[in-house]
Design a protein around this nucleic acid. Sequence first.
DNA 1: GCCTCCCGCCATCCA
DNA 2: TGGATGGCGGGAGGC
Length: 900
Amino acid sequence: MEVNCLTLKDLINPRQPRLDFATEDGENAQKENIFVDPSRMAPKTPIKNEPIDLSKQKIFTPERNPITPVKLVDRHQAEPWTPTANLKMLISAASPDIRDREKKKGLFRPIENKDNAFTDSLQLDVGDTAMDVFQKRRPSRKQKSLGLLCQKFLARYPSYPLSTEKTTISLDEVAVSLGVERRRIYDIVNVLESLHLVSRVAKNQYGWHGRHSLPKTLRTLQRLGEKQKYEEQMAHLQQRELDLVDYKFGDRKKDGYPDPQLLDFSELDYPSSSANSRKDKSLRIMSQKFVMLFLVSKTKIVTLDVAAKILIEESQDTPDHSKFKTKVRRLYDIANVLTSLALIEKVHVTEERGRKPAFKWIGPVDFSSSDEELVDVSASVLPEFKRETRDQIQVCAIEKLARHGSFNRVQASERIQRKVDSEPSSPSREERGSGGFSLEFGSLAAIYQQKIEDNSQEKGFESNSVMPPSSSLDPAAPFPIRSDSEYCVNPLAHQAFSMPQTDLQTLSIHSGLNGQGGVSLAAPDVESLKPAPLASQPLLYVPSTSLFMLCGSLPEGPSPGSEKDSRSSDVSAAAEQSSTPSVQKRLSEERKPQGEEEPATKRQSRDYEDGPLSLVMPKKPSDSTDIASPKTLNNRGSVPLEDIHLNGQLCAAKECSGKTTANGFVSSEWGNPSRSTEVEKPSKDNEGTKQPSLLQYLYVQSPTGLNGFNVLLSGSQTPHAVGPPSGQLPSLSVPCMVLPSSALGPFPILYSPTMAGPVSSAPGTLPNTGPVNFGLPGFGSMAHLLISPAAMVNPKSSTLPSTDPQLQGPCSLHLSPVMSRSHNVSQPESPIYGGPPVSVVKVQQSSAPVTPKNIQHTRCETFFKTPGSLGDPVLRRESKQSRNTSSAQRRLEISSSGAD
DNA sequence: GCCTCCCGCCATCCA
DNA sequence: TGGATGGCGGGAGGC
């Protein structure tokens, strides 16, 4: 009995790490299809962290119990040796105290706490009669929502998988793992596929691409949406308040709207997909069209009725109420997934006729450049730089390469080194000397190209890609940045898409401090890379010994360990703007292979995308040009924290101040002219209040608990003068330093709401102007937090909240858990803050109008601990089971492999 | 009472 | 022919 009791405790332990689950995720999926002694299996489930509660498992996952749900229920009652029965026995043996305690916990346990919930349900399940348990523990609709399911689904895979890895999604496995029918998974993957986050590779198999190409996808959709004149259509509908009956397809045509049937959506189709021939891709197409509506909408808000009407019209269906209703249902399905992706959020639009359900786009609005483009551009421009700059850039390039390419940093560095070695004549080689990797930028470009070619051979995912050939994308196509402060509010959105923007930001910030910290900190392998001493970096003098560069560019994307760091590659960011068409094309075409499935935990840990908040403290003014350039050019994102030495930085600063200017200018030139123009607006707003090129540093006195560490952040980012448009090249990557408190005197901390980024605050609300003050608790009266607008640009970054000072509550500084990340420690706040490995300062979003859902979902593992999220009402099912014959086929059937 | 959207029937596709 | 897909809409939960 004692043994049993112990086992039970273990099972119940809500704090059971999810790591196991994550690690075994794939394996377990397989195992789940195999019959396992229930008594054994049960204990494992909690550990896995699976979002499934016991009751649900019984019902929905035949795999686990090789019986149909219905049968399972029956069996559960009839057979004493079902898993439940075993658990019952175990629980009975367990101390009553434990049961009571767990029960109580469960009562107040948030839905998000899946593990706990699971435990709870387990307890109840065992302790009460089956019926009571089901009644009590029956998961709510919300817990079973497609959105939640999608969250769980997404949590299984890295947002930005390494290109070297291929992640295959087995629908069966996922369905089993999530405890749902495959049918539900179809809904999710269809939407994901429409955005090219996944692609079908085989029957029941999908390849996970992650968000790498999302910007491209969105860009394409935007173009198509514009082409389709969706905006006009929406305006037309809204303006005339046409209802389904009134609205006539013909009217639209009269107005010059293109005939939907004539539109070429082939781009959005899956050329090689086996499903191609099927006519029923409507969910995917609907999803794409739905997204288009947002992308072309100025308000970024789309009401479901309008969307439904447009879809009905395009499908040329008879506009009857039934159709309308059906469309709305589907739109809800799609919206749930998009919400899980932090692309949209639910809102309500109040009109004369009442409140209408609507969704607001909170995803990136400026996806002008993709990561690949950034890399490509950076590579192409590398030759333009001087040695010092190149050294810095190459580090960034390696990061980029590692992140975007098919190899990790070590591999990237090796490859680069080989390349360099193979080109003795390379000028850069001659100049090499700063140690680390002296990479000739041209070589880098070549390497990257080679990588692309290599990747292109991996046709698996690409062939199935939903997205149109990248070639179709026009890198130079201007994308107006639509700023909406509200968008910034949503952490998820930022998190999800911060990457590109982060890069841009990083680029804009060339202060030597940039990038260094962020990149290196997290990645172990980065250490292998010995970045040459950074040159030319304007630096603020601070006590050297204790000065650390914490972060430059914060991680945009999830990167295992160092991946995030890659974002710091300012160069690439700069380059991205001027990507070479041909190269871009190839790049875009390139599909990154997906890494193999990683442990969920690991994956989640990678999902960090937030940019750093820019905490800025005005520093001594310097030549605007100088400042600007350094920001733009100097990037050390990949430099390991340890490697960063104050001296080096100082030297770099000195050197750079002059040199970088030119570079910065160059980068700006590279940038897409059209774009820069557009983007620049925001930045200009700031100019008035800001000193354009001055490096700004924020000194933050160490709050209690930080023991002598103060944070010095470089805030001035504005690329206005020379650099790329502020909007695109937000100085987001905030170089920050941790300084001994003693070294710093009290500085006012100002919070600057202004955001240059597209996602950033609404232009009107928070123009990129002067910094805004807000109280910083813990800093006493002396301290004010100044957040650089540029920093805000990064949507992902937790900075979001900062966008709107008012939204933000008191902000608190906290050292970003770099370590945590690198160590796969889940951070509750990370979802929102998704910060860089080393985000030194973080503004709390507590008060920010962040959608609770979003926050929780994004990366919080806890979020997925919802006990009953997957569970189904047993009763209901039972009543319906009779008619389930056909659906049964879709249910995962593990029976074959099962013990049965 | 309306909004949401889960659930699963059943048609279609494909090997 | 059977499994894979996914359109579709009934109907129930939630507010």
